[in-house]
């Protein structure tokens, strides 16, 4: 087992492509965790099954990416998942926000899965064969997540007055967090110059087109204009929510140091 200090040191000195993969993996891991919190609380049994399905896909993506990221440093997926502090996590803030109501969750999934679609489509062209193969498979999964999110966005946006209002509130709250997804990132820029990953800014246009079209059809109007752009997740600067999430997630693992499960 890698010691805490060694783990911190190793994660700080990951090769660029490994660090990038870790961030993408953290997105999927945290997103999956939030969805799993819905089990036994979903609006209907069919949604229990559907949300669990999406959470499982995302968890599978996370496991591949964490495994990939840790390989050259000898770090396992579990060491990365369970022994990093929130200052060492590199997920986007959008993924870590608390679930809120079902409207909030649906809209977050819409925004996030639409982003992953663009991301994985770009990553499918990577000069790194392993990442490209992963991305192609993951694309099929996120297409399905996106379809699910679109379906519910339409139903809730254009359902009852109450559902519309809840969706509108969710949109106001979540939209500011989307800026971070496409923000300038020196790590990604360097790698995209080598044809290894897509440039985040390039993903924005197609993402915006898709999302605004769905929002319009759902009678939610244009995207809100915002004057705040929360960010910092890629640098380990998170909202206060993440350390609570990790405290829970890591609790059993940390209570038994060195154990296998």
């Amino acid at each position: 087992m890698t010691t805490g200090r060694a783990l911190t040191a190793l994660t700080r000195t990951l090769k660029p492509l490994d660090a990038y993969a870790l961030a993408v993996g953290d997105d999927a891991l945290i997103a999956s965790h939030r969805l799993s919190e819905w089990l036994t609380r979903a609006p209907d049994l069919e949604e229990e099954v559907a949300l669990a399905n999406i959470a499982l896909d995302q968890l599978g993506q996370a496991r591949f990416l964490l495994g990939y990221a840790g390989r050259s440093s000898g770090l396992s997926e579990d060491e990365l998942a369970y022994r990093r502090s929130d200052r060492e996590y590199r997920n986007c803030l959008l993924a870590e926000l608390p679930n809120g109501d079902f409207a909030h969750t649906v809209l977050r999934l819409l925004l996030f899965s639409a982003y992953q679609r663009q991301l994985y489509a770009g990553l499918g062209e990577s000069a790194d064969d392993e990442l490209a193969a992963f991305a192609k498979k993951a694309s099929v999964e996120v297409d399905y997540h996106y379809e699910y999110a679109v379906s519910w966005t339409l139903r809730l946006g254009d359902g009852t007055e109450e559902s519309h209002d809840r969706m509108a509130a969710a949109l106001e709250e979540l939209w500011p967090y989307t800026a971070e997804l496409f923000a300038d990132d020196p790590l990604a820029s360097g790698l995209s110059a080598d044809g290894l990953v897509p440039e985040p800014e390039r993903l924005h246009g197609p993402w915006m087109e898709q999302v605004t079209s769905v929002l319009a059809e759902a009678t939610l109007g244009a995207a809100p204009s915002v004057n705040r752009r929360p960010g910092g997740g890629r640098a380990g600067l998170h909202t206060e929510a993440l350390s609570y999430l990790l405290a829970e997630m890591q609790s059993v693992h940390r209570a038994h140091p060195g154990a296998t499960w």
């Binding site: 036994t40 099954v49 499982l56």
Partner: peptide, 24 residues
């Protein structure tokens, strides 16, 4: 489901998630 968010390894997490999903 009570232990889903605290599953101590990613493999166990996936297994438990699949199981609870099966029950639904």
């Amino acid at each position: 489901g009570n232990w889903l968010t605290r599953a101590p390894s990613l493999r166990r997490k996936a297994i438990l998630l699949a199981k609870v999903q099966d029950e639904a």
